[in-house]
């Protein structure tokens, strides 16, 4: 495993730790999109169906279990925890899941490397992950106050795929891996979707101002 891949996994893990900290310690999920969190559960469940069938490494299996467990528990807190659920911005988190799930599923049926259940689900998870942040970004745009934790959470989540892009470049040139258009292009799209957010995040950080996205 190269340093970019590790950095990607660690920023991803850190983003989840940050969100869980906000939920568990602050008892708040204000500014967090339940829609996006539910999409991540679908992403992990469909991508990690191979967990029981194929063993890559201890690291790999543990991380998969952590991503599955934490994403499900985040959704549980936001939906059912009696204090946390009251902080959820239900009225502004109105993005419809189906508008993302359905096109991604159809695309996965049409464009995949092999028409098998595992392969189609894996491809679907990559397409869905690329766009899963959209409800969260819409929610941020509608929020007047974006707290630091939420801003940092979204930033780390975006940085994770950017590191993966570097990892793929490294693997292709240094480790002579194959061309993998499906993860590469969806990863590129995923990172590009954050471009606007990155711009305002870095700007607010440089000017020591509170993060605010223009409507």
């Amino acid at each position: 495993m190269n340093a970019f891949r590790l950095a990607g996994d660690m920023t991803h893990l850190l983003s989840i730790i940050l969100l869980l900290h906000k939920i568990r310690a602050m008892k708040s999920c204000a500014g967090i999109s339940l829609r996006t969190q539910e999409l991540y559960v679908i992403v992990f469940v469909t991508r990690y169906v191979d967990l029981s069938m194929k063993y890559y490494s201890f690291y790999n299996s543990i991380m998969k279990i952590v991503f599955l467990g934490t994403s499900i528990s985040i959704v549980w807190y936001m939906r059912y925890h009696k204090v946390v659920k009251q902080t959820y911005n239900k009225d502004v988190d109105t993005f419809r899941h189906i508008f993302l799930i359905l096109p991604c599923f159809v695309l996965a049926l049409l464009i995949n490397r092999a028409f098998t259940v595992i392969e189609v689900l894996w491809t679907f998870s990559l397409y869905l992950e690329a766009v899963a942040i959209l409800p969260q970004l819409v929610l941020l745009q509608r929020s007047r106050n974006i707290d630091n934790l939420t801003g940092n959470y979204v930033f780390l989540l975006g940085a994770y795929r950017a590191f993966y892009l570097l990892n793929w470049i490294y693997r292709f040139f240094i480790e002579n891996h194959q061309v993998r258009w499906i993860p590469w292009l969806s990863g590129l799209l995923q990172t590009a979707i954050y471009a606007d957010f990155f711009y305002y995040y870095i700007k607010s950080w440089k000017n020591r101002e509170k993060l605010k996205l223009p409507a």
Binding site: D50, K54, Y56, N60
Partner: peptide, 10 residues
Amino acid sequence: ECFYEPKDEL
């Protein structure tokens, strides 16, 4: 088989 790149990423 070499058609599949192993899915060893997360």
